[in-house]
């Protein structure tokens, strides 16, 4: 589904990604962990070209990411993304947030888009909030709307960029439940998150990032119990306390 080979990225002089290579199969759930500044966010943001990579190749669903704007737009409409800070559109209602892209990008009519949006709100368990504005919802509800908004495009891949980091502990659970459902439904997912339980329960693979590259990768059970790399051991011992 996704093939990244030798992806490099520089911010000015700073070498943020140093030859990341990762393939994700259809239906696979990959969790990306690592200390802050290790390049994990930059990496998943290169997959839908929110950040541009300067070397290497990224192929999503058979389309290579190049400078061609049409390729970028095609990939973006196949790849859903959920952000740390939700980034809902505050001037639109919840329903309008969800129907906007299907109507404008997929040219779906209003009735059909609205129907799909309501089904998605049902799925993220907040059908009663459809006509409110994002500012009237709690953080957890906003993040679930953001997930529904991304799903409305019927993406083949979902990217999660620290979806629970900006939430209060009690709201983390409701978002994670939705993500678990999604993972079990067979969605291809790449999640940057430090939620160990989520990783343990649904991830097929965990990648550990440090200094712009993947230093260790494996099934969660193995990686969490017997990490091989010294940096992984240090990191895990810190977040487990």
């Amino acid at each position: 589904m996704i093939q990244c080979v030798d992806v490099h990225k520089w911010y000015g002089q700073f070498h943020a990604l140093r030859g990341v290579t990762l393939s994700v199969a259809r239906g696979e759930v990959v969790v990306v962990m690592g200390p802050s500044g290790s390049g994990k966010s930059s990496f998943i943001r290169t997959i839908n070209r929110l950040e541009e990579h300067q070397r290497g190749t990224i192929i999503v669903d058979g389309i290579e990411l190049t400078h061609d704007v049409r390729n970028i737009e095609r990939i973006r409409s196949e790849v859903g993304m959920v952000f740390q800070s939700f980034n809902l559109f505050p001037h639109l209602t919840v329903l309008e947030n969800i129907t906007l892209a299907p109507m404008r990008v997929r040219k779906m009519n209003r009735e059909r888009a609205g129907k799909i949006a309501r089904e998605l709100l049902e799925r993220v368990r907040i059908p009663e909030q459809a006509d409110k504005y994002p500012g009237q919802l709690s953080g957890g509800q906003q993040q679930r709307v953001a997930i529904a908004r991304a799903l409305a495009m019927e993406p083949k891949v979902m990217l999660f960029d620290e979806p629970t980091s900006a939430l209060d502990p009690e709201m983390i659970k409701e978002v994670l439940e939705v993500m678990v459902d999604l993972a079990k439904s067979g969605m291809t997912m790449i999640c940057v998150t430090h939620e160990m339980n989520f990783a343990r329960n649904v991830a097929h693979r965990v990648c550990f990032f440090d200094q712009g590259n993947i230093v260790e990768m494996g099934p969660p059970a193995k990686l969490f119990s017997t990490p091989e790399h010294e940096r992984t051991q240090l990191f895990l011992s810190q977040i487990l306390h």
Binding site: R74, S77, V79, N87, A101, V105, A150
Partner: peptide, 13 residues
């Protein structure tokens, strides 16, 4: 905020 631009981009607008 920059996030608004990114969200719009990510949806393929």
């Amino acid at each position: 905020p920059r996030g608004q631009f990114e969200a719009a981009d990510a949806l393929g607008l």
